[in-house]
């Protein structure tokens, strides 16, 4: 077959082998201080004692996160990048994008939530079946970002509970995937109970 008219291994994207997934997920800085201590605590007191069934259920839940993209603004475009050809979220069972809240269990709030949208967000969150998880993506959704303004919700935790916060404006697709992986690990460790 003919070569591509461009060199995709060139300087636009350099490919390098990374570490194994677990190692990569633990790499980020922000999680850090005290993360390891907390894990030991969990082992001693919490998750270690849960039954095998629980472990199984958590494993299954973590591997089949069906996202509901609540995309409003710029971050939604990056979310689209994540589900399009350059990234492969299907490897983690999270590619089934559902626009109906009844069929989703992970809500990715991508973009600014303004006061006018707040009741809508709340209603859609309430329509999701339990267990439901929420990722707040980007500066606007997590805290209002630089819109300290008369019509912008200063962080969606005013309205709904949030499990994972992703900084960035917008976060890169890899950054968002990292947060999904981290949420997956949290669920599988049984840390998120909802």
């Amino acid at each position: 077959m003919a070569n591509l008219p461009y060199d995709s291994s060139g300087s636009i994207i350099q490919r390098k082998r990374g570490g194994p997934p677990g190692e990569g997920a633990e790499k980020g800085l922000i999680t850090l201080p005290g993360e390891s201590e907390r894990e030991i605590e969990d082992l001693a007191g919490g998750t270690y004692l849960t039954t095998t069934v629980d472990t199984m259920v958590n494993w299954a839940r973590g591997n089949s996160l069906w996202p509901l993209p609540f995309g409003t603004a710029c971050c939604a475009i990056e979310f689209m990048s994540m589900v399009s050809s350059h990234y492969d979220i299907a490897r983690f069972g999270a590619e089934v994008v559902r626009f109906s809240p009844r069929q989703a269990d992970l809500m990715i709030v991508a973009g600014t939530i303004v006061d006018k949208m707040a009741p809508v967000l709340k209603k859609i969150y309430e329509q999701m079946p339990e267990p439901r998880y929420v990722i707040a993506m980007g500066a606007c959704a997590t805290s209002g970002g630089f819109y300290r303004a008369y019509h912008v919700v200063q962080g969606i935790d005013e309205i709904i509970p949030v499990d994972m916060w992703v900084p960035g404006c917008p976060p890169t697709p890899d950054g968002l995937m990292y947060s999904i992986l981290k949420l997956k690990e949290k669920i599988q460790r049984g840390e998120v109970r909802r």
Partner: peptide, 15 residues
Amino acid sequence: KQLPTISYPEVKRVY
């Protein structure tokens, strides 16, 4: 080998 897909997190995009 020329697939544009990046298998994050094993392969990481270097910005």
